[in-house]
């Protein structure tokens, strides 16, 4: 009998600190599957900022740099600019990318920085115990919106892919989810496309992954998947918001 599904090589064989049912574990595996398939682990450098994924340097087999909160895209820019032939990706949470790190996020888009940004949107600050994030849904209860997010006072959640799609340097802005196996397959394809874009020097690829946070949502892993499907996807429609390869196809 042949093994048809196994632990990716570039994912270190350790148990993770993520909570049971947390989407981070799935996305880590997808990134590593793509790295294995492209055979680029030796030429890849990961940048992980502060958040639940901060300890991903214990999980990614490639070289990893831990960045200050919100600054991973800038750190990744520094890495990529002086190592243009290496593959560079950042793996960030929503608080990191769309709150404190918004400027860095926007500017790797404006510069068309040739990196891949893996953006985990789970509508909360997981590591610090479930505070409101820039992606927390209207009415959603969090540690800092105990009565539900009130858009009058806490503002509206940011749709990052739509925002990034307006930037000329963005080559790929796609939103995926991990709430079901078909969606997980789709997510992997998107991540793969991001790394291929980087190989072809097409500019910034940002893949937004709707993910779960059972612990801070106070839901079971299964209920969390439902929350993604029933609550998040309507507000954050999945799909490709910009894809220069598709446009190339049209032009030719």
């Amino acid at each position: 009998m042949a093994v048809v599904f196994d632990h990716p090589k570039s994912l270190l064989d350790v148990s993770t600190h993520f909570c049971p049912g947390c989407g981070h574990g799935i996305v880590h595996r997808l990134v590593c599957e793509v790295i294995d398939e492209m055979g680029i682990e030796g030429d890849t450098i990961g940048v992980v900022p502060v958040g639940c994924s901060v300890m991903s340097y214990n999980y990614f087999g490639c070289d990893v740099i831990e960045a200050p909160h919100g600054r991973a895209p800038a750190v990744a820019t520094g890495v990529k600019r002086v190592n243009p032939d290496k593959f560079v990706f950042s793996y960030q949470g929503d608080g990191d990318l769309a709150a404190i790190g918004t400027a860095e996020t926007v500017h790797v888009g404006t510069r068309g920085e040739n990196i891949v940004v893996i953006f985990i949107n789970n509508t909360t600050y997981g590591m610090t115990g479930g505070q409101m994030a820039p992606t927390t849904l209207p009415g959603q209860v969090t540690q800092t919106t105990p009565f539900g997010r009130n858009v009058e006072t806490n503002g509206y959640p940011i749709r990052v892919c739509e925002m990034m799609a307006t930037l000329s340097g963005t080559a790929l802005a796609q939103r995926v989810a991990i709430d079901s196996v078909p969606h997980i397959r789709e997510a992997k394809k998107a991540i793969r496309k991001g790394f291929e874009n980087q190989k072809e020097k097409r500019g910034l690829s940002i893949i937004e992954v709707l993910s779960t946070c059972p612990t801070n949502w106070g839901l079971s892993p299964e209920e969390s998947m439902e929350f993604v499907k029933d609550q998040m996807i309507p507000y954050y429609p999945l799909g490709v918001y910009k894809d220069v390869t598709a446009e190339e196809g049209k032009k030719a």
């Binding site: 009998m1 093994v3 048809v4 599904f5 196994d6 993520f18 049971p20 799935i26 079901s180 196996v181």
Partner: peptide, 18 residues
């Protein structure tokens, strides 16, 4: 051996053979 269980497993704890 469709491996759907393995694909959704957040901890890569499942190996599938066919």
């Amino acid at each position: 051996s469709c491996a759907m269980c393995a694909m959704i497993c957040p901890d890569c704890a499942i190996q599938i053979e066919k």
